[in-house]
Design a protein around this nucleic acid. Sequence first.
DNA 1: GTCTTACCTTTG
DNA 2: AAAGGTAAGA
Length: 426
Amino acid sequence: MTIMVTPTPAGFHSLSLPIAQLSLAAVLNCGQSFRWSSYPLAVDFTSGKYTAPTHEYRLCLRDRVVCLRQSPEALFYRSVFPGRDLTPAESALREAETLTWIKDYFQLDVDLLQLYDDWSQRDPVFRSLRSRFSGIRVLRQDPWENLISFICSSNNNIVRITNMVHTLCRNYSPILMSLQPPSPPSHSPLEAISYHPFPPPSVLAASDVASELRSLGFGYRADFVQRTARMLVDKHGPAAMQGSVEAPERWLMTLRNEDTAKVREELLKLFGVGRKVADCILLMSLDKHEIIPVDTHVHQIAVKHYRFPRPASAKGKVTLTPKLYNEISNRLGDTWGKYAGWAHSVLFTSDLRTFSAYGLDGGDENESISSPRSVSTDSRTRKRPEKGPPLKPSHDAARDLELAVGEGTSLAERVKKRRRTVAVTA
DNA sequence: GTCTTACCTTTG
DNA sequence: AAAGGTAAGA
């Protein structure tokens, strides 16, 4: 018998990679990096013999825009550069660089299936989830971008954080290049998209930036960003030559080789960086795979699935005290082991999905945060011709999760609530 | 050490 | 009221 392999899209290179090792749809939209853009592709369904990519994902690096697509068995990549066309030899060299970057950024040397096995063996809760949420891994991000992005994340939601990070790039970093969107909808005119790299420390350290960011809607995080940039530039030296990596960025990079406790201490000195943000940076860009950042979602997961006491909110806020933070982080760390932070990301992402099921995202977001279970759900979603009730597909996702998890009483309650709301509105 | 409170802004 | 919290003060 023959197995049809998805053809490599024109202009792309192919890397053999099972989607269970990496789901771009899940990983690039789950709030690790806030800078990827995704574009739906016009897909031809007349042939059911192979599964063509449904989206293209793009990220602007210092000198190039990386474009990715994915099929069940392969990752397709290409990079685009500003300026003149490259010779074939130059192009081959640059694509080799891009491939190296991809392997590093997605940490492809780490076998995710083996980790899923390990976590399943250690933890029945994880075991019940694994089949539903595959391909979720931790990115190895740039520490500087990671730091600033997560300073923006405090007491905030993913949609707004994403907007803020793009605003930073648009306003404080020169445009690298413009690119056409991939397979644009035929009815709308071709409109080139501008790509900006992430702005360097020296630029964000300027004293004007604080007030400018205020007026750009950053709220109190405006001062966090500017003052942290200022601190780093003051401490580790001024800007280097234009286009090169600045001293604070290099210093942050060296923290990858340092001891966890020491690095956390360093990060906590930065304005706007508390325990949770520090832990995110440790996990997501400084190679500390065992770290579990405890946010409101993880807190809720701990309560729902790991028998942590329901917050005794007599009436007021549910503040996550440092004491409770440590207890949750340590307990889950013991449960999952050396790559506990990665396991945390799987559960975090799955929990995000249950939230998106209740319409907390815009309609477009529902599309772009497409299901990790890719094929089946995607096709279901795609068949829906118009906007329709945006809740329906993800509503199914919520029920699936509920079944997968087995318990989830509060989840069930919320589903009922949603049904009632729908009924009333309808 | 541990516990409150104010804080920008958007969305349900 | 809550969103992937943090700084400052009691």
